[in-house]
């Protein structure tokens, strides 16, 4: 039996939430409507497809929330977050209204599609707004719990789905805490969402702790401090590996370790627009996010001579 992908899981769980809670509404802009056909038949007033009008989709979510409903708005990441950003800022945050935004496409799930369908800056954009939760599942089996708890919660949340996936789910991470996968002495490597498997391969023979995050806002500052405690030998070395714009969470590592001497290597998608097609794996390599590239960066950072190789 193959595990359904994240988008399929999202549609199934959102449909269950529509059945279970009369406050829940799903707002769409023609994308994924095929996955909500049955739910739309059962709940014609709460599965709302506004057509190809993403800013309207986000504003409608805001208006629904202002009448006491719990909207979930969903589209491709660039259209949901970047095209609609002022709507997110004003029609949700500034209105003191909240919604759950769920994207697909991630940084470059569809490399053949080019820049128009890529959104490596989405998390950084949402991070300019106060009080949002941001979830980056690394496996489809983490999506259900992240979505259910986000809808149960009263604040706004952004859930970033991807076709990229780790081989195994880590359900513990859906609590929002850093999930310690391996312990080591030399450094702390934090892998976000689908970056876990490449990080584990890149660091298999390095004496480092690896922690997994499926939730990056709020960032588990206490968990990171605790890990830094274990591995502290004077200066704490931290490597942050995010599947979106490099450095997006650097400020939070700095905040967690404000009173600790530390060095930070932030890895992620570069700011260069590649203007290349090919596969997502090709782009991983171009951005240095494949296991080999990650390993090169991490070993250089840790200064090869001091790294224990098993």
């Amino acid at each position: 039996m193959t595990t359904p992908d994240m988008r399929t899981t999202f549609a199934a769980v959102a449909s269950e939430l529509l059945d279970a809670d009369r406050r829940v509404a799903v707002v769409l802009a023609d994308i994924s409507t095929d996955r909500f056909e049955d739910a739309a038949r059962r709940h014609p007033d709460r599965v709302i497809n506004v057509g190809i009008r993403e800013p309207l989709m986000v504003s409608v979510a805001g208006g629904l929330a202002l009448t006491g409903m719990r909207p979930i708005a969903h589209s491709y990441a660039p259209f949901l977050i970047e095209r609609s950003f002022e709507q997110i800022k004003l029609d949700l945050s500034h209105q003191d209204a909240s919604a759950v935004l769920v994207s697909v496409g991630a940084s470059y799930d569809w490399t053949e599609g080019g820049r128009t369908h890529q959104a490596p800056g989405d998390v950084a954009l949402i991070d300019t707004l106060p009080g949002w939760a941001i979830h980056v599942p690394g496996h489809a089996d983490e999506v259900a719990e992240l979505l259910r708890s986000a809808v149960r919660d009263s604040r706004s949340a952004y859930i970033r789905l991807s076709t990229r996936s780790n081989a195994e789910a880590r359900p513990a991470a859906t609590s929002g805490a850093l999930d310690v996968v391996r312990r080591g002495e030399r450094a702390v490597v934090v892998a976000v969402g689908p970056m876990l498997d490449p990080v584990l391969r890149a660091t298999a023979d390095l004496d480092v702790s690896v922690a997994y995050a499926a939730t990056v806002r709020p960032f588990d500052l206490a968990g990171l401090r605790q890990l830094a405690e274990v591995t502290a030998r004077g200066v704490v070395d931290v490597v942050l590996v995010e599947p979106y714009l490099a450095g997006t969470s650097s400020r939070l590592v700095a905040e967690a370790l404000v009173d600790r001497p530390h060095r930070l290597l932030p890895l992620g998608v570069g700011r260069i627009e590649l203007r290349r097609y090919g596969t997502p794996e090709d782009h991983d390599a171009l951005y240095g996010l494949d296991p080999a590239g990650l390993r090169r960066s991490i070993v250089d950072f840790l200064d090869g001579s001091s790294v224990q190789v098993a």
Binding site: A25, P55, L56, S59, G63, L64, A65, T67, Q95
Partner: peptide, 27 residues
Amino acid sequence: VEISSGSLGHGLPLGVGMALGLRAQGL
């Protein structure tokens, strides 16, 4: 005051959402 405004082009889309929300709740 039902909405915070100032940036143009937000009230009508928000109003559409409110109208849908009222309808969905049978109001």
